[in-house]
Amino acid sequence: MRRAATCLLACMIVLLLVCAVHQAAYPWLAWLRSFAEAGTVGAIADWYAVVALFRHPFGLPIPHTAIIPQNQQRIAESLGNFVDENFLAPDLVTGRLKNHNAAKALAQWLADGANSETVADAVAESLPGLLNAIDEEDVARFFDRIVMPRLRTFDLSHAAGHWLQIFADGDRHQPLVDRGLHALEQWLVNNSGLLKAKFSEASRYTPARLDGYIVDRFVEGIVALVHEVTDNPDHVLRRQFDSALLDLVVQLQTSSAHRRFGKLLMRDCIRHFRNGDYCRVLLENVRRHVANDLEREYSVARDIATALLVSLGKGIAGAPAIQHKLNAWWLDVAHSLAVRYRGQLPALITEVVKSWNAQEVSRKIEAEIGRDLQYVRINGTLVGGMAGVLLHAATFVVVR
């Protein structure tokens, strides 16, 4: 396009010269000469204007030429300000995002199992690297700063009492009592010989037959009692056990002695954890289990992550109230980020543009818009030529 515009300028100059030479013989060439003169002036003027944007014409340091290279710093600042004022204003950002239900769109995307699986695969693949980047000191610091202070103040006795109370409410402990009674019965039956031997050692002056008879009757009586307690939910022994359990719950929650014992036990556990180098053992076990799981074709971690993401997506997609809360949170985050980092992106744009080589920037811009600028030269040539013809016509009319 540059060559086409330049050739058109050359044609105007040649036409002007031809008309100037032969106008005396052919007066009508005055019209064509007017077209060529004005076209030549328009072409030269537009060529100068286009060249002056990017460089000095013919290398001459004419004032107000090479406009882009000379004003690179101002252009950079203007570009940064333009982005800041027209793209990063907090109200503008939140206004554009307000009409978009981002939470619903994300939830529907996650509800698709293939999408959730893709996210789960990416998370799972990053786990080994994340775990390998964690060293023993990091785990130890985490336990020392986060876990251990809470364990030191943890009331183990009160918590144990609370758990037992939950366990005892609604007679949830009764199946365990039944299993304990059945285990006691089996132990008595299986160890009657041991009971006889111990009874004989304690009773040296009675016949062995009598000892066996007494032990057999004793075992039979205990077994019968166990059957009674098992078959009767309201048996007095069962009620006594329930009463003792409730009393233990109260003691664990209120007794200072139990509280001190719980603190001592917790302190011993903490000391044992530290002395046993369990931070390293825990980290190695987690790394090994995660690596082994991810190497399998059907990874439990991937399946769990995929199921959780799908369930999360379906749950949010069907809950407009949650979507509203998430969108409000997202808009608040976007507003906060726009306020906090609004000035950094324009500053980055300004610094980057300022750091570019001025001549290289000029060449790149010219390469992008140069084709249209050459059309400006061509149009200037033709429009100038027509303007010349019109001016010649006006002069001809006035003179006549």
Rank of each mutant, 00 (worst) to 15 (best):
E37K: 02
A160I: 06
V397N: 08
N327S: 03
L294I: 00
K196P: 08
V376Q: 02
N292R: 15
R287L: 03
A328Y: 01
A102G: 11
G343H: 10
G193Y: 03
R141Y: 05
P90G: 05
A197S: 12
A4T: 11
L15V: 02
R152L: 08
V281D: 14
F241T: 12
D135C: 02
Q72A: 03
D178M: 12
I62P: 08
N232L: 03
L326R: 02
L184G: 13
V361A: 13
E228Y: 00
I75T: 05
F167R: 05
Q251I: 02
G313Q: 02
K314C: 11
S34C: 08
V339W: 04
L88T: 02
F143H: 05
G59P: 03
R74A: 12
I369Q: 06
S243M: 07
L151D: 06
F82G: 14
A305E: 09
L9S: 15
L79C: 11
V50Y: 00
I68K: 06
N115E: 07
V397D: 03
V147M: 06
D46T: 07
V389C: 04
C11H: 01
H100S: 07
G370P: 09
L176M: 12
N115I: 01
H258N: 13
W356V: 08
E77H: 14
I75C: 03
L210H: 04
F154H: 01
D211V: 12
E351C: 10
W163Q: 12
M1K: 07
S311W: 04
S336C: 07
A43T: 04
T350V: 06
Y213M: 14
V18L: 14
Y298F: 10
P61D: 05
G380D: 03
R33T: 02
R260D: 15
R271D: 15
A301S: 15
L17A: 15
A319Q: 13
D135K: 07
D268S: 13
M12Y: 01
